[in-house]
Amino acid sequence: MTGSILDVRQASVHFGGVVAVDEVNLAVGAGSTHAIIGPNGAGKTTLLNAISGLVPLSGGEVLFEGAPLNKLRARQRARLGVVRTFQNPALIDALTVRENIQVGLYTQTKSSSFEEALGLPRALRREREARARADAVLEELRIPVEGSTPVGALPLGLRKAVDIARAWVAKPKLLLLDEPTAGLDESEIGEIESALARVKGEISVVVIAHHLDFVMRLADEVTVLEFGRVIANGPPTEVRSDPAVIAAYIGAADDD
């Protein structure tokens, strides 16, 4: 695709004899929101792990802004602007919302550990800037929580929102969201959706979600995986009416 920020070409991930991702192709347009859906065990998170560098590809390649990522480690990809969230946010409960969001600025804060340990002026200045940036992101995403609230006191919906803010604060070029709506009620899903809608178009987003209405409203393009393979790809309305998708995914949901 012309103008795509992310190209996944013939990507495969094998765990021993298990093929988790099987020759998947995916192209994410710059500034677009691309959803990946599919039943449990379809390989969605494994694909996201492969894009972010947490698991190596067994075959194929991942191109970011036209350059191959395969040989880069996860932290190097993050420094390039490929940042992700997790199903389990792994926030630091003992710290505040603001401090947790500041972790997302780790690669962008220019002070050394030595300066920080001694509390030297440059480190303190950078700390103040990071704090202000974290507060600004809370406002930007309209997350209804004070920056000074301990994260341990938050319900799951707000924890997920703080996780997104932690990834968003670094202004990544590509944001990978792994199940941001899992375990949330309708109103919380609505808030996550609103937060993402507010920043839509500013950066490219790849989002894994089970909640179909959320996906259909938010995504510009949808890829459907089943048993590690792509069974459909295209605009949400097109994918929703695809018989293979209905059979593999929506049909299965209806059966439930």
Partner: peptide
Amino acid sequence: SEAVAVALG
């Protein structure tokens, strides 16, 4: 989580 830390750079 080491995975989260790595993914944040």
